[in-house]
Nucleic acid binder design. Structure first.
Length: 524
RNA sequence: GAGCCGGUAGCUCAGCGGUAGAGCAUCUCCCUUUUAAGGAGGGGGCCCUGGGUUCGAAUCCCAGCCGGCUCACCA
């Protein structure tokens, strides 16, 4: 939305900017400000000086002068007392109060403070003292306006750590995250924790000798998951391309190539709906390790979650609403059909035939339009009746073959696969297989998926000849893991909406922001 | 995709057929250590958009846009 110069609040700010420039004081001309302290550092430094001089007075030694500081930040509140003026200044570290007085800065400079607005960036210098009301405060002797805010920030009143009359409109906060972040230290903290989790994941895998790699985002065959891809086009090559929907197939190519432990944290794109648990682009962690089976991957996930929770909370327990979830291993293993038996009373034998499965699905009130296979039905029943009950971490195991085209068969029950999905807090958090490394079997699976694709299943796995060629060179037995990072961050930070763990969640375009397509304004 | 709820000043919200409101913010004036908020006075609106009903619509009706929640689906 272009700057509305008819708006009073904005016009006043533009006017003040013009006045500053007329005085040769363009705030946007500054390209640096040397800080001696952060705001929090200025306060703590002063408090240390206080205790030092208090003990110095007891021993009768000469007192140090009060510390002088240079601090910079955004102005959050201005309290004008006539010939004195107080400002709340905030930076990333916290806040400090500023005290301006005519005879400290001079009448001319003091008058210039009329041109200061909430939201402006200010750099100041002067000694620190404690006011009569006990607040540690910088007595400003010099100041520079470092940048002007032409728009008023969406904030209510702020005094100390309290904030009143805050912006609560979630649409505003997601669309204008910059303003949300500027005004809400708690939101910045949320994303700092996300970063900490990412750092933790890397530390975890690096400590275990895994190699972090990067694989293509632009692909001609987008596979490795059941999802619809985004389409794009390479002009020069005149080639249709897809954005990747998973990392799987390229990472397994690397296992073929002789890397024995690899992982990637990457953005993937799925052309599907948007809600509190889904964003069209999201971050996925996948790891592959040669010569290990599913049991090793279970142990790996148990360790990873405990490691991350302990980093954040000091113990392997995460908050969940007003309660807590204990992540201490071992976590229970629950075969898929056993979970369904426990929560619906339907016996596993019923799923021996498609007709039996369809009958149960109908009785349970499921929409059968797409019920093309037993596996599909089992998955739906699980999603609806079992998954929401799995609050404590649970490995659901023994997935049907037809919904697991990349997982090894269980030798004595070839309709099932060596696969688990991890559920915590009623949400799927991880998906892992003993990776199918038999290229002949893999080709049959792809062909079966192709038949489903021909049958109208847009999410059936596409044939990938290059991947098959890689398997044909030989891939060792391998354990693979996938974890949705955003869901993981939601779990670890007790958030119920994926938008609150994404800095810039996907939103429909704002009507009036629409640019002329001919001018090429909007990307993607 | 369906149902329900919402969109009014920079922010938070009230108003729900009869001149567009409040608090904070903003502007002017007074005040040299204030603390959500000293005192006095002033300005500020495409009431989401487009149709309709009506003497008259922010308010009622229809369609649409954007968002939230629930459900269906995908991680």
């Amino acid at each position: 939305m272009p700057l509305d110069t008819t708006n009073d609040l904005i016009r006043v700010r533009l006017d003040k900017l013009a006045q500053l420039r007329a005085q040769g004081l363009d705030p946007f001309a500054h390209d640096r400000f040397d800080r001696s302290h952060t705001t929090a550092g200025a306060v703590s430094g002063f408090q240390e000086w206080e205790t030092r001089t208090a003990s110095g007075a007891e021993s009768g030694s000469e007192p140090d002068p009060a510390p002088r500081v240079c601090v910079a930040g955004r102005v959050f509140a201005i309290r004008n007392m006539g010939k004195a003026l107080f400002v709340d200044l905030r930076d990333e570290s916290g806040r400090v109060q500023l005290y301006f007085r005519v005879n400290h800065v001079g009448a001319e400079a003091f008058a210039r403070l009329d041109l200061l607005d909430r939201g402006d960036f200010l750099g100041v210098g002067g000694p620190v003292f404690r006011t009569r009301t006990g607040e540690v405060t910088v007595e400003v002797h010099e100041f520079q306006l470092l940048a002007k805010a032409l728009r008023p920030l969406p904030m209510g009143n702020l005094v100390g750590e309290e904030q009143h009359g805050d912006v609560t409109d979630v649409e505003f906060r997601y669309r204008q995250r910059y303003a949300d972040l500027a005004v809400h230290p708690g939101v910045r903290e949320q994303f700092r924790r996300r970063s900490l989790i990412l750092r933790g994941i890397r530390d975890f895998f690096d400590q275990r000798g895994y190699l972090e790699v990067e694989t293509p985002v632009l692909q001609t065959v987008a596979g490795g998951a059941a999802a619809k891809p985004f389409h794009t086009y390479h002009n020069e090559l005149e080639q249709d391309m897809h954005l990747r929907i998973s990392l799987e197939l390229y990472l397994k190519r690397l296992i073929v190539g002789g890397f024995e432990k690899v992982y990637e944290i990457g953005r993937v794109f799925r052309n599907e709906g948007v809600d509190t648990e889904h964003n069209p682009e999201f971050s996925l962690l996948e790891s592959y390790e040669a010569y290990v089976n599913l049991g090793a991957i279970e142990a790996l996930v148990e360790e990873l979650l405990c490691f991350l929770a302990t980093r954040l909370y000091g113990r392997p327990v995460v908050p969940f609403g007003d309660e807590e979830i204990d992540l201490t291993p071992p976590w229970p293993r629950l075969p898929l059909l056993e979970g369904i038996r426990q929560h619906t009373g339907v016996q596993p034998e019923v799923f021996a035939s498609l007709d039996g499965a369809r009958g149960v699905a109908g009785r349970l009130g499921l929409n059968l339009d797409e019920a093309v296979s037993v596996g599909w039905i089992v998955d739906k029943i699980h999603g609806r009746y079992v998954q929401p009950k799995l609050i404590r971490p649970t490995f659901v195991t023994e997935f049907p073959l037809e919904i697991s085209p990349l997982a090894k068969k269980i030798a004595d029950r070839p309709h099932l696969t060596h696969r688990f999905e991890l559920y915590v807090a009623g949400a799927e958090l991880a998906n892992a297989f003993s990776e199918l490394n038999d290229p002949l079997d893999q080709r049959e699976r792809f062909e079966a998926q192709g038949a489903m694709r021909d049958g109208g299943d847009e999410e059936a796995h596409p044939m990938d000849e290059d991947f098959l060629r890689a398997l044909e060179y030989g891939m060792p037995p391998t354990g693979g893991l996938g974890i949705g990072i955003d869901r993981l961050v939601m779990l670890l930070t007790n958030q119920t909406s994926i938008r609150d763990v994404l800095l810039f969640p996907h939103m429909r375009p704002e009507g009036r922001l629409d640019t002329d397509p001919a001018s090429g304004g909007q990307g993607v």
